[in-house]
């Protein structure tokens, strides 16, 4: 297995290189690029990024583990990111979580066997006025209830 950036991204990389004084500065943008390209960051992608950034593979790997928004495992088609911070917690996100777990039969951090859903909990999504909130891929779903979440998930199946 090997990883290569696609032509669009290679073009972008050349553009980025001219923006920064050192190639090492590209590590974060390149990790994002790899994640958008594959849906997750594979070790092969890290190896490729290390080569472009002219740095040991460990440097890129430790950056990718430091930030929780980088996914090192392959995710389901829909990535459910349920907020677990104070406002959502006070507005019953625990019940919403239970409802998701019952519906999909998975725990936090797991994916469904059909590869459709991955469930994770995240810190504040910055939408406390409409809590509880979840981010499904790039979309926010607000004012969730244990019933409404089941409807949303059923519609996606």
């Amino acid at each position: 297995m090997s990883f290569n950036f696609n032509d669009d991204n290679l073009e972008k990389i050349e553009l980025l290189k001219s923006k920064y004084p050192k190639v090492q500065a590209l590590s974060l943008p390149l990790l994002w690029m790899a994640q958008y390209q594959d849906g997750f960051i594979s070790l092969e992608a890290i190896q490729e990024i290390a080569k472009i950034c002219e740095t040991p593979m460990m440097e890129i790997y430790k950056v990718s583990t430091f930030y929780s928004m980088f996914n090192l495992q392959k995710l389901g088609k829909y990535h459910i990111q349920l907020c677990k911070t104070l406002s959502c917690k006070l507005c019953n996100k625990d019940d919403v979580l239970k409802s998701i777990q019952n519906e999909l039969n998975i725990q936090v951090g797991e994916s469904t066997s059909d590869g459709l859903f991955t469930l994770s909990q995240v810190e504040c999504l910055g939408s406390c006025g409409t809590s509880p909130v979840m981010q499904l891929n790039e979309t926010y779903y607000e004012n969730l209830t244990p019933i409404s979440i089941v409807e949303i998930l059923k519609a996606l199946k």
Binding site: T55, P56, M58, E59, Y61, K62, T65, F66
Partner: peptide
């Protein structure tokens, strides 16, 4: 990272 310049070890997470 500084002495052998092989960079095998790092702090992760």
């Amino acid at each position: 990272s500084n002495i052998t310049k092989s960079g095998e070890l790092g702090v992760i997470n």
